[in-house]
């Protein structure tokens, strides 16, 4: 259908202003940063001329819009900026740490989506029965607990008291040699290397943070699926399906579910944002060597370019997930394919 490709193209084009906006906001915020980056770099005990030279070197004496274009130009060349503290481009550190964050984020998404759908459908089919009430209470708790707090509670229970979870320090036990870096995601790398010791250890390590991170998303999504499923079950076309006498499995899993998933897709995209935020907090709790922890450490060291690079990446990543959600939505719902 010609409309589909047209939709894809239009939606891709509509990414541009969003990306531009994200970059612009990051730029503005990074220029309001207190203190002169040049000053931070060389310390306060310098004379005026030295400062001027350095500012010129950094392009800080140019008008703002020129600075913005320089910033854009650098980004187009995948240059995320220079960290004065690291003494090198932020790129290197980002490339090093990004896979760990991605691994954690993806793991929690993979965990949360099916669980949310299953519990949501279950609750809808048993609306206002005990199971539904239980899921309501649990999801209320799920959205009301700060991620980092419930993770601490989980560490306390599963590591400190029960001892079934690994120590909350990083992705792999300290006594193991990490697998060779291929994707940077240790679970995947160890599997590619057929290093099953590392693989199981890495999987063991990711369980707690991934579960903690996905709780809120599961709670939110499953409620959305529940209520949309309930709506769908009351629609006329469901009566048609029942009257036709289709098997219940087909009615629920095919005809009803696809309709019920539609609002879920939109909410899942929003939850992607929540998971990105949650990754930062989770990495802090579990000393997970990802971008989030990198950013938090950079904050402590006043390394603003690094922080801003992480903020920018998270914004772009989120924009990508929204884009993906729209595509999936259009794939599921023919009505929006223009």
């Amino acid at each position: 259908m010609g409309g589909t490709s047209k939709f894809l193209i239009l939606r891709t084009i509509s990414l541009i202003p969003t990306i531009f906006g994200v970059i612009l906001v990051t730029f503005i915020l990074s220029r309001i940063v207190p203190g002169n980056p040049a000053l931070i770099l060389i310390g306060p005990e310098v004379n005026g001329t030295e400062l001027k030279v350095l500012e010129a070197e950094l392009g800080l004496n140019k008008p703002l819009y020129v600075q913005f274009f320089i910033y854009l130009w650098q980004l187009l060349h995948f240059n995320l900026g220079y960290s004065y503290l690291l003494g090198q481009s932020v790129n290197y550190e980002v490339a090093l740490r990004f896979p760990a964050s991605l691994e954690l984020g993806l793991a929690s998404m993979v965990l949360s989506l099916p669980i949310a759908v299953i519990t949501g459908v279950y609750a809808a089919l048993r609306a206002n029965k005990a199971g539904d009430h239980a899921s309501r209470v649990l999801s209320l708790l799920g959205i009301s607990m700060p991620v980092f707090w419930i993770e601490i509670v989980m560490i306390l229970i599963f590591y400190t008291y029960l001892g079934v979870a690994p120590a909350p320090f990083g992705q792999l036990s300290a006594n193991l040699t990490p697998p060779a870096r291929i994707t940077g995601m240790e679970i995947l790398d160890s599997l590619l290397e057929l290093n099953f010791v590392d693989f199981f250890n890495a999987t063991w390590h990711i369980i707690l943070p991934a579960v903690g991170l996905s709780l809120a998303s599961i709670a939110t999504l499953s409620r959305v699926i529940r209520s949309s499923m309930l709506d769908v079950l009351n629609r006329d076309f469901m009566r048609t399906s029942v009257a036709i006498g289709l098997p219940k499995k087909i009615i629920v899993n095919k005809y009803a579910l696809r309709n019920a998933l539609l609002p879920g897709i939109t909410v899942a995209a929003i939850q992607a944002g929540a998971i990105i935020s949650g990754v930062v907090l989770t990495e802090t709790v579990f000393s997970w060597q990802g971008l989030g922890l990198f950013a938090v450490q950079a904050i402590d060291q006043l390394d603003y370019p690094s922080v801003m690079a992480v903020v920018l990446i998270s914004g772009l990543l989120f924009a990508f997930f929204n884009f993906l959600a729209d595509i999936i939505y259009a794939w599921v719902d023919p009505r929006v394919r223009l």
């Binding site: 629609r235 006329d236 076309f237 009566r239 009257a243 036709i244 719902d333 023919p334 009505r335």
Partner: peptide
């Protein structure tokens, strides 16, 4: 078999 009011949503939109 039953024919519902068709202009409403007797057919699954997806």
């Amino acid at each position: 078999s039953i024919v519902f009011q068709g202009a409403l949503d007797s057919l699954n939109p997806l």
